[in-house]
């Protein structure tokens, strides 16, 4: 079974996404801030990383930097708010993220994209 690391500080969103991905048969590991996210990337060896951008301690861009350095082949999906700066989104794409989903979002749509990436 594929393992997905979800880095999201919003408890409700993470709970919902986790529930949806578990339904599709994935193992999900949820952490609520950037530091825990980096630790999990190092120790858990996930098959996919889903990360928010604005988070405590370390933001999504720092996490993507770290993931690209430590696990260059692990696909990353960025889950972010619409209002966030264009420059952040561009930087995320330049770092080679696989997909970008903006909030408000449909968890079913996210699940479809996860399925496509991990196929």
């Amino acid at each position: 079974m594929k393992k997905i690391l979800l880095i999201e500080d919003d408890l409700l969103i993470s709970s919902l996404v986790e529930f949806r991905l578990n339904k599709d048969g994935y193992i999900t590991l949820t952490v609520k801030d950037g530091n825990e996210g980096i630790h999990a990337i190092n120790t858990e060896n996930p098959d996919l990383i889903i990360t928010d951008v604005m988070m405590p301690f370390k933001n999504g861009i720092e996490i993507i930097h770290h993931a690209r350095k430590e696990k260059p082949n692990t696909p990353i999906i960025v889950l972010s708010s619409l209002g966030e700066e264009e420059s952040i989104v561009l930087e995320a794409f330049n770092l080679g993220v696989s997909d970008f989903i903006s909030k408000p979002f449909n968890p079913n749509e996210l699940a479809m994209r996860v399925k496509r990436i991990l196929r």
């Binding site: 409700l12 709970s15 949806r20 339904k23």
Partner: peptide
């Protein structure tokens, strides 16, 4: 309460 609510909400919605 937030922790208590998140799980039933997910179940109901999905």
């Amino acid at each position: 309460f937030e922790k208590e609510i998140s799980s039933p909400l997910s179940q109901i919605l999905f």
